[in-house]
Design a protein around this nucleic acid. Sequence first.
DNA 1: TTAGGGTTAG
Length: 504
Amino acid sequence: MIPGAHLPPLRAARALSARLCPSQHLCSEGSRNGGESRRDTLQSNGDGILEGEEEVKGLDAGHFRPEMLLRLPPPGGPPESDDDDGEDLSPGHGSRRWFFEDVRLEADRIFRILLQDGPGFSARQALDEMRPKVSIKLMREVLFRILVSVDSVNRERYPKLAYRFFVWAGQQEGYRHNTSTYNLVMKVFAQCGEVKAMWRLFEEMAEKGLPVSARTFHLLICASGQVGLRRRLVERFIKSSTFRYRPFRNAFNAILHTLLTIEQYSLIEWVHQKMIFEGHSPDVLTYNIVMRAKYMLGKLDQFHRLLDEMGKNELMPDLHTYNLLLHALGKGDKPLAALNLLNYMSDVGCVPNVLHFTNLIDGLGRAGNLEACKYFFDEMVKKGCEPDVVCYTVVIASYVAAGEFEEAQRYFDDMLVRGQLPNVYTYNSMIRGLCTAGEFDKAFSMLKEMESHGCTPNFSVYSSLVSRLRNAGKDSQANTVIKYMTDKGHYLHLLSRFEGYERC
DNA sequence: TTAGGGTTAG
């Protein structure tokens, strides 16, 4: 039994953080650079699980022994539900549909009117004459039409149209803009690079006392390029009485989460410092976000310190914490510590699922430990946890990266047998593998095959295939691929990126 | 919008 299992939350969490020793790194890179011999992150215990020496590969990384088995509850799971009829056929559904259909038609008309605005035609007057019933739904429909039609030609004109309509609608009786309509106009502005106008709208929201949401923050922070500006924005939101999150910690969490989605890790550190300074206690979500940021920034000591602190604060790691830890252990090539952690999770009732295994396998694959990837994949299946398309893709990509295409192919075939449909990620990995193996004809066949299976290749796949063909001196085959792409009508606007290609 | 996993050339 692993220490910490079945203990009350505080003791269990502290036991976990003790086992992921703060003084030792999860990732092997740190110790390689430091030149010191590395030990595995999990502490020694009564079961004798422990101590991985550096450079030991495969399942031996971390002194893996056959008796160390993965413990998961027996396969089974909840009984299958058969009461799902799909469609909602409740009364009123039809009339609701008609209502929405009417709104869409009205939005189409308004959009056409707006497009005509200019000398000799007043959209405002036409809208007055049309007298549409302005509602939040209608606003969303119209603004959405503008948003999806923005391109490089109209990006100066469309924000003006959107704003003109927005102002007109705001003057109509019985209607008031809410946060979501402000956010939508801001989104149009953002799409067109009208940052100052976004800030003006933000000020207007404040003046009207309209609540600002995490979405508002997201839009503004994405549009604010400089660090100073971003920090000022965070401060504005934190001070804002209309950014309503209670308890107040949740306002910080909303900001932190947004920053995580846009990969602003340093800013996360800064906001976290500010949060602590202002006396707000972090919860599990806070810790998970800040720990992820620390991990991404390579600050593993601080990562460990936070994990330890989390335990001391009586906070139990959750599924997301475990996900991060497993990925880190995988990438640090610590299969033994990962096995330990999976067992620990099961023991404390947080049963690992396919996402945890995928994260772990992904990490191990990046560390180049294919043997461990295979072990955990097999164990997962044995325990009744079905690998899905992402899990298969991660395994395939790992074998491809290691130059073992035959194994990748085996997993590709296996996923088909198990009824998992490859998607664009899977095909991309396979095509890359075939190119690396010099099997260019097969790579091109697979490109065509994915198309016939409803997976449209993205431009990178074409580009990658073409450049690999060219590098191999197969210019004529490269041109065939480009021609195939143009015949399909794909990415014609990017054709110029293929230098030296002349369209026939 | 208070979360969760994957590909990519130049």
